[in-house]
């Protein structure tokens, strides 16, 4: 007779596992990857590959030779970090900056805290912000999209992002109408589909939203975080637009430019560094939305979502402590 196993209940397990979750995220990123390849061609492929491979490599090296523990690079978390990191950089970024970014992402932001599940900050964003501060020139010279099947253009052509244009314009004392009239400002449709200058993954709001809906459907992320960020940005920017449309641009512009969609859907929802409870997720989302707009409107940088998410990441333990799920049978008892 074989030996029976003894363990506590439950004796069955659902179908979820870490790998599945991570590869669902990768799958959700596919539309955005395709769009970026469409607009930036081989450059996009190059940046994506370098980022993913170097993230995997550093995770492997650190787990194998520094921690000397089990190697878990196949769980997909490094792939996700690499893809998100690549999404945050311009397509013409020199390869060595990308590698340094990957090292910071994996080495400092992830493994130094103990690896998957322990990092307080979103690793890809830490890497991105590190690169942005260390290599501001390379990180902010975005190539103009050169669609895959169009006649190839030289790499030298770079253009500012829509947000960059806005910031520069406002600094130069122009009003909104004048800025929008600038020929290099992308049209609304272009902003939606991604035909504008910018980082790889920030391009197409539509592709990102498709991926986001897919993840919500597969229950990898909750709708509360992206929705609350987008809502806050819309409302907050809308209020200022109503107060003075001369200086403050309309809220829809804010929604579809820069990294907002990418940040709201993929970065802020990172399981490890976002709050655990629904009420906390609202607080977190609203906080990110507010800080983003504050940085965009009055800060030194044209884009603020990365900083906003990192700042709110730091508040997550506090949010988890303060915002609990509604306990069953504690309040609102209908008698």
């Amino acid at each position: 007779m074989s030996q029976f196993t003894i363990s506590g209940s439950p004796h069955v397990h659902g179908e979820e596992n870490v790998k599945k979750i991570m590869y669902t995220v990768v799958l959700a990123l596919v539309p955005a990857i395709l769009v970026s390849i469409y607009f930036f061609g081989i450059d996009a492929v190059r940046v994506l590959l370098i980022a993913v491979i170097s993230c995997l490599f550093f995770e492997w090296v650190i787990q194998k030779y520094l921690i000397k523990g089990p190697v878990t690079i196949t769980d997909g978390s490094a792939v996700v970090a690499g893809l998100l990191l690549a999404f945050n950089v311009p397509a013409n970024l020199p390869w060595w900056i990308m590698v340094i970014g990957a090292l910071v992402t994996i080495g400092i932001a992830k493994m130094s805290f103990g690896g998957l599940g322990k990092n307080p900050f979103n690793p890809a964003l830490v890497g991105r912000v590190f690169m942005l501060i260390s290599f501001p020139v390379q990180m902010t010279s975005w190539p103009v999209p050169k669609p895959l099947f169009a006649n190839s253009l030289t790499d030298a052509i770079t253009g500012p992002t829509a947000l960059g244009l806005l910031k520069e314009g406002l600094d130069a004392g122009k009003n909104i109408d004048q800025i929008l009239a600038d020929p290099s400002m992308p049209a609304y449709l272009d902003r939606l589909t991604g035909n504008m200058s910018g980082s790889l993954g920030e391009m197409s709001a539509i592709a990102l939203i498709i991926g986001g809906l897919f993840m919500i459907w597969r229950k990898v992320i909750d709708w509360q975080v992206p929705f609350s960020i987008i809502l806050t940005v819309f409302v907050f920017a809308g209020i200022f637009h109503l107060i003075d449309p001369e200086i403050y641009i309309d809220p829809v512009f804010h929604l579809f430019t820069g990294g907002l969609m990418l940040g709201a859907i993929y970065m802020a929802t990172d399981m490890v560094s976002s709050p655990m409870n629904i009420s906390g997720k609202w607080v977190y989302g609203i906080g990110i939305g507010l800080i983003t707009i504050i940085i965009r409107m009055w800060g030194a940088y044209p884009e603020g979502i990365s900083f906003a998410i990192l700042i709110m990441n730091a508040f997550v333990p506090l949010i988890n402590y303060g915002f609990k799920p509604r306990r069953f049978g504690l309040v609102g008892n209908k008698k």
Binding site: Q3, F4, T5, I6, S7, G8
Partner: peptide
């Protein structure tokens, strides 16, 4: 000799509540 296999967390405190022992 073990008559059953224990499959659970490595804490005696829990296993003690669960069953008699392998």
């Amino acid at each position: 000799p073990a008559k059953v296999n224990y499959d659970g967390p490595s804490t005696c405190a829990f296993a003690h509540n669960l069953y008699a022992g392998e």
